[in-house]
Amino acid sequence: MNLSVKDLSCQRGERLLFEHVSFQLEPHQWCHVTGENGAGKTSLLRLCAGLSSPLSGSISWGGVNIPDDLDGFHKDLLYLGHASGLKEELTPLENLTLMSQIDGQPATEDAILSVLSFWGLAGREDLPVRVLSAGQRRRVLLSRLLLKSCPLWILDEPFNALDKKAINTLYDLLNNHVSQGGLLLVTSHQPMEMAEGIVLSL
């Protein structure tokens, strides 16, 4: 399976964010999308996730145009965006249980507790998300990387609010994913400490 982006242009309101963007991502490859604030990094990631439509150009997954088989594409995709994607009144355990069910890969309570413990959140599983710090919320969200098994990860600023230890943990996960044949499309304002990948500057 590969992700192929051809001649993509994106407009938001009256403003043309970028045009004629093309790249191809194969298994074992990762792409770092860089650019100034407002350059269209998030818009590009949302386009690649099938969340919005481009002005022109096409995006295909495994040779199939994404809009032609959106549900099939979403089975293979994990997209973590800017927003927390967590319900503040629910606990991390409840949030992750629901998301794993919605992702079509229901996780057991033990599996979720083990993942939360991996992220240093043992003992916080039954607290409402609203009482957690920004970094802890981010770690709850990133727990989905270990709960959904899929080849394509699209991550928008995944290092935000993380401490040094969590950043290293995340690098390990990203490297592991790519080395096992996964594909990674990521935006980050900090230099990526990973093996050589594609750099796309907007």
Partner: peptide, 15 residues
């Protein structure tokens, strides 16, 4: 919509 869960729900392979 505000907390991003609607976006995640729309990405579900479920209907």
């Amino acid at each position: 919509y505000q907390d991003g869960t609607l976006e995640q729900l729309s990405l579900s392979p479920r209907s």
